[in-house]
């Protein structure tokens, strides 16, 4: 991926004029967050808040800690044996509190991964309904309605409505990724974390997903990690630049891409390194 070297700030097309009212409600906030793999701190002392119903982009070169940071927000960092210090507050709740249920937390903070991960033994319908099998009970009619709505919102309904009982792995890569988005939004989380969701997709698949984000932020708060700075510029309201595990700069996307205050940010977005 050489998008970095292909662009200069002047060529960045911005969602114009990106409406970012200052009065937004902050939904999730990390305070002095440090994330370790063993003794190695991959994310160091990050304090960062995210307003509701916005698309927030996390950018930075490989190994800068942006994915690790993302995974601390739904405690998936611990799945690979990591641990954290500091706090993350979602709404009113400290998600690292001692009485937090991981199951309930992850139902409030959904996640989409770099590679599409449909469950291969389940049909398209079952995949979307998978998240409804845990937590609050739903009857059949409710599940039908939720599955249809989630597929509509993920822009996949028209393509799969006649083959809901077929295998999910027969779909194309881009369709699989939108299926994973449908599966993530079906249980109505508050926050959706996307970890380079278009990295394995072709340009058309990428475009479909980017278009979705504009609609999805009406209902959800979206945090997206991306290697592609044009993508960050296109889809996000705010952008945060990570480098070597520290947060270098955060702000409105337009400001970050046109008038960064930090020299390292400018060097990165103009393609001088990374």
């Amino acid at each position: 991926m050489s998008a970095n070297s292909l662009m200069t700030p002047a060529t960045v097309s911005l969602p114009d004029p990106a409406p970012v009212p200052a009065s937004g409600r902050e939904l999730i906030r990390a305070t002095d967050l440090t994330a370790f793999y063993g003794t190695f701190a991959a994310v160091k002392h990050v304090t960062l808040g995210f307003e509701a119903n916005r698309v927030h982009a996390l950018i930075g070169p490989s190994g800068c800690g942006k994915s690790t940071f993302l995974r601390t927000l739904n405690r998936m960092h611990e799945v690979v044996g990591g641990h954290v210090t500091g706090r993350v507050v979602l709404g009113q709740d400290d998600i690292y509190g001692s009485r937090v249920s991981l199951t309930q937390l992850r139902r409030r903070v959904g996640m989409v991964f770099q590679k599409p991960t449909p469950f291969p033994t389940m049909s398209i319908y079952q995949n979307v309904a998978a998240g409804l099998k845990v937590g609050a009970r739903h009857n059949r009619a409710e599940i039908d309605a939720i599955v249809e709505r989630a597929l509509q919102q993920a822009g996949l309904w028209n393509e799969v409505k006649d083959r809901l009982r077929q295998s999910a792995v027969a779909l194309s890569g881009g369709q699989q990724q939108r299926l994973c988005i449908a599966r993530t939004i079906a249980p109505s989380p508050e926050v959706i974390l996307l970890d380079e969701p278009t990295a394995s997709l072709d340009p058309q698949g990428t475009q479909r997903i980017e278009e979705l984000l504009f609609n999805l932020k009406q209902q959800f708060t979206i945090i997206i990690v991306t290697h592609n700075m044009q993508q960050a510029a296109r889809v996000s309201d705010t952008t945060t630049f990570f480098y070597l595990g520290t947060m270098v700069e955060t702000g409105a996307t337009k400001q970050i891409f046109t008038a960064p205050t930090q020299e390292r940010t400018e060097a990165y977005i103009t393609g001088r390194f990374g």
């Binding site: 991981l102 992850r106 991960t117």
Partner: peptide, 12 residues
């Protein structure tokens, strides 16, 4: 990745 996908959906 399948295990992570299920855990991220809130599966115990």
């Amino acid at each position: 990745s399948l295990r992570e996908a299920a855990l991220a959906l809130g599966y115990p």
